[in-house]
Write a protein that binds this DNA or RNA. Sequence first.
DNA 1: CGCAGAATTAACCAAATGGTTAAACCTAAT
DNA 2: ATTAGGTTTAACCATTTGGTTAATTCTGCG
Lengths: 217, 217
Amino acid sequence: MDKKENTTPDQDSTEQKIFDAAHEIFTQKGMDGAKMQEIADKAGINKALLHYYYRSKEKLYEAVVKAVMAKALPTVRQVIESELPLEEKITRFIDFYIGLISKNTFIPLFIISEINKHPDHFFENVMPRQLPQPEIFFRQVQEEVAAGKIRPIDPRHLIINIISLCIFPFLGKPLMRMLLGLSPEEMKKLLDQRKQEVTSFVLAGLKPVQQPESPIP
Amino acid sequence: MDKKENTTPDQDSTEQKIFDAAHEIFTQKGMDGAKMQEIADKAGINKALLHYYYRSKEKLYEAVVKAVMAKALPTVRQVIESELPLEEKITRFIDFYIGLISKNTFIPLFIISEINKHPDHFFENVMPRQLPQPEIFFRQVQEEVAAGKIRPIDPRHLIINIISLCIFPFLGKPLMRMLLGLSPEEMKKLLDQRKQEVTSFVLAGLKPVQQPESPIP
DNA sequence: CGCAGAATTAACCAAATGGTTAAACCTAAT
DNA sequence: ATTAGGTTTAACCATTTGGTTAATTCTGCG
């Protein structure tokens, strides 16, 4: 019998339609730019229903933010906290993370924007309790540095570098296009190469220093 | 005679006070988040004066955006288009750019956000006519690659990498803090090290490949 | 059927917000 | 001092917007 008793959040129930619409609008326009009427329209329902299911704009917004964060962070955790060898961990992280971003173009800017506007609120109410634990990664880096397998680097900077190289090109896509004078197609091609490029750039940047005698003659 | 005929924008004239207030509010809250009343309050004047000098919110906003872009881009140009040797050019660019960003924390997010919301409008109305010409830089990179002085790399990716490493850590500061579990002081310290860190990371990432035999035993 | 409770809607409300207006206020030149 | 023109303001206006209400429709069930 196909009643509606299952625990899954009722695929395409009204509530779900509202949430989906809100997700789209909020992530693209932010809290201030989003209008309740627009969300209702996109969901194909009456505006009053928004308040019937989610009491206020803030509540609805918060639901979206929480969902976004709850989806984005564990993926990072999973890779960061694993016990893979460092190089493979880095490779996988880049592959995975860039893949994620290219399928959710608006999310990074959304997170960054909103976290900047209400940092305190974010830290207190929105953050998933289970933050990634970078300690394993830190230790790995320190070990490999000590073993001379990679050049000395502060693991925190390394994480920052990797994440910057993954996220920013998508964030700044229009800016980069303009700066480099690229057509949309050229830009797309370039972004498609980022997995490869970031991986080799980071690994190259980690090679242990050999005294730079004379380059290949 | 000190009429008001000079070309300089009348230091702390009413118009200037309005512009300054608008600059602060708009860059921090974006077009949607900014309220005319708040700008008027910050400027210490009546709201009607905003419309007396700048006819509408959009006009005022546009004035701010144009000013921001007109200030941000030439600095990039200057370094990019110079004929300095590649390594020094990169070093200087990083030093200069990170310096600029740390003194104008809100600007990058502002530019990125607004360019993403109205890309067409940006490209048509707001962009300074004089875009940086990356050709010189491209050529330099290609030459050094050909000479075996740096490992093979697409110059466009190199620019993207450098800019990502410079800008993103400041954009994503709260996010990074959270991810790494750092106090505000620790985070500040880390950001203060970015000039050094980015420079060595990029230069390391450009070292020509020596076949990785056995690491130092 | 008929009824209870949930779902949905049209109409409405109050506050916020961008923008206007007409009057008041300078200030410099007559 | 008077006046003309730019500057500034308080009061006002129209629209937008988040939110509410009361009535209507829908749905399952005895």
